[in-house]
């Protein structure tokens, strides 16, 4: 690892999540693991990208699978917090630096949570370009979207309790600025993915399942 452990203690790095504050049901998460999308073959390694902090319940959930989990807490990256001051090429390079997976890695599952809503148009395009090389035709992604500013996103960490339940934990530090995207905008800027299923939640968020457009 190239960065010193002290980075973990600085304000810019990941911080310990608070206790679980609530659990919310999900009708789509389980779809990633059940027909008609299929089911992870427990004899085959499942490669997962988690755009967030490593939480106990998420690690516990995946402990039943043969898997490799890549935790990349982009929420805590300073360049994401200061994205307005950077060009698309700079942001792409920054995302690529975060996505330095071993050669040959292909992600089966991407857990975006609400991260995409914290990226402006430029950053979303940069994110798309940096992520694309690591996808394959069978990749699936899950996330939450906000289509307008009236939708309030809580400043929380998400985790997976089980196939049908997310956990929420308070995120320390100031919340990121929101950049709501319509479904069309999202499709244009996150071009490596297309909507597979969407579900409007009572709080106005859209829970999304995405499939690659490769």
């Amino acid at each position: 690892m190239s960065e010193p452990a002290l980075q973990l203690e600085t304000g810019a790095g990941p911080q310990a999540a608070g206790p679980v504050t609530s659990r919310i049901p999900s009708k789509l998460l389980g779809s990633l693991f059940r027909p008609p999308f299929g089911s992870p073959d427990t004899n085959r390694r499942l490669t997962v990208l988690e755009i967030g902090a490593a939480l106990p319940e998420t690690v516990n959930f995946f402990s039943g699978f043969t898997c490799r989990l890549h935790f990349v807490d982009l929420f805590a990256e300073p360049f994401v917090q200061a994205q307005q001051n950077r060009s698309e090429s700079e942001l792409r390079a920054a995302f690529e630096a975060c996505f330095r997976f071993p050669a040959g890695t292909r992600l089966d599952l991407c857990l975006f949570w609400d991260f995409l809503t914290y990226l402006d148009d430029t950053a979303l395009r940069a994110f798309n370009a940096a992520l694309r090389p690591w996808l394959h035709r069978g990749t699936r992604a899950h996330g939450f979207g906000a289509h307008h500013m009236a939708v309030r996103l809580a400043n929380v960490h998400y985790g997976i309790c089980d196939l049908d339940t997310f956990s929420l934990r308070d995120r320390r530090g100031p919340p990121l600025h929101m950049y709501p995207h319509s479904q069309i905008e999202m499709h244009d800027m996150l071009s490596c993915f297309a909507f597979e299923r969407g579900l409007l939640l009572p709080d106005g968020k859209l829970e999304m399942l995405l499939k690659p457009t490769l």
Partner: peptide, 28 residues
């Protein structure tokens, strides 16, 4: 506080633990 890549059949994080890296798990 851990920064690195982990290979282990079972991994447990306790509340408050900080981890950055990858976890390669094989329960079998």
């Amino acid at each position: 506080r851990v920064q690195g890549n982990v290979v282990a059949p079972r991994v447990q994080l306790e509340d408050g633990a900080l981890f950055r890296g990858s976890i390669d798990m094989n329960p079998g």
